[in-house]
């Protein structure tokens, strides 16, 4: 059921939600950008609607709630392995359509793909999603081409309409709180983007053969393998394991996992010194093909959701969408073929 609410009404809803949920939303963190006197838009717990940044795309993705950048798995004492506690509270995540689409990608890796990930699942099972409508595409967005500009599978939606807010609710348990705090009922269709400035076209006939193409060579020197594109990507899921012992007492320690990047040195290192994909261009190829080719080959749909954050963040102005659009050239160059 859809509702029109005042700001106070929305805040009353948030307040009631806060009794059972931590509410995560994109917020503007003043002075937290890398350059001085610039802001960073990141996910953080909120209590009022005024804290939510509606106007800009978040710099870092919501996925940090589901797969924290650094997550403790176990604590070790001398002879015991103790599982780290999960979050105490359920979570609500406010996010845009493209990002809600990326939840499906995270689920595919962490819940499906043969094994269920215990740590992901215990958070994921207790998360509700509130869709933030998009009136216009941001710079570098290409959600329409990736077909992620609309989504129906939200629990609720929230959008500014002039001085008021519109919410659509699809989660039965929340109906009464919205009913109580809404001004009036109405049909609410969350805004969605129908046109973007950036377009991508993923060619037919892609295969690993394109790794031989010359299109990757320019990235050998342009890319600085910092991994920002991975860390801001809402669909990147890779991690590395780390064991530590606490320095003040070598007898206890923990095992954790931290986000990993296929662009950063060390990603493929094997015992004894072997490593694969040493060139940045080949790392780029690995990342790009994962997003728009091989993930789909395994799971049936593209990994990339067209949010454009990798383009937004690259300090070397390497455009992922631009690279996708070069794939056609690469296919022709190496002689495209359709795989069985």
């Amino acid at each position: 059921m859809g509702y029109l609410l005042t700001k106070e009404g929305v805040n009353a809803v948030l307040k009631e939600w806060a009794e059972s949920y931590l509410i995560y939303a994109p917020v503007r963190m003043s002075g937290k950008g890398a350059f001085s006197e610039t802001d960073s838009i990141r996910y953080a717990p909120i209590t009022t609607v005024e804290e939510i940044e509606f106007e800009k795309k978040s710099d870092f993705p919501f996925k940090e709630v589901l797969i924290p950048l650094s997550e403790t798995l176990f604590f070790f004492t001398e002879d015991q392995v103790t599982e780290a506690d999960g979050p105490k509270k359920n979570a609500i995540i406010l996010l845009r359509s493209c990002d809600l689409h990326s939840v499906k990608r995270l689920d595919e890796i962490y819940i499906k793909n043969e094994y269920e990930d215990y740590y992901y699942k215990r958070i994921r099972d207790n998360v509700k999603f509130v869709l933030m409508g998009c009136k216009n595409a941001f710079e570098n967005c290409f959600c329409v081409d990736m077909q992620t500009n609309r989504i129906e599978t939200y629990d609720a939606s929230l959008e500014k309409k002039g001085d008021f807010y519109e919410m659509d609710n699809r989660f039965a348990d929340w109906e009464t709180v919205l009913e109580r705090n809404g001004m009036s009922r109405r049909v609410v269709v969350p805004s969605y983007v129908t046109e973007t400035n950036v377009h991508v076209s993923i060619p037919q006939g892609l295969s690993l053969d394109v790794s031989r193409s010359k299109i990757w060579d320019e990235y050998d020197s342009r890319c600085i393998n910092c991994g920002r594109c991975n860390f801001v990507c809402p669909t990147c899921t890779c991690f590395s394991m780390q064991d530590i012992f606490y320095t003040d007492n070598g007898k206890i320690g923990e095992r954790r996992r931290v986000a990993a990047s296929c662009m950063v040195d060390g990603y493929t290192d094997v015992a004894g010194g072997g490593a694969y994909r040493q060139k940045n261009g080949q790392r780029m190829r690995f990342r790009v093909l994962h997003k728009v080719y091989d993930f789909k080959k395994r799971f049936g749909f593209h990994m990339c959701t067209g949010c454009g954050r990798c383009d937004d963040v690259c300090p070397e102005y390497i455009s992922f969408s631009d690279c996708i659009n070069k794939l056609g050239i690469a296919v022709k160059e190496v002689g495209g073929h359709n795989e069985e």
């Binding site: 002075g31 937290k32 960073s40 910092c226 991994g227």
Partner: peptide
């Protein structure tokens, strides 16, 4: 400036 995850801030 180098931190890709925003762990370091000003």
């Amino acid at each position: 400036l180098a931190c890709p995850t925003g762990a370091w801030t000003r």
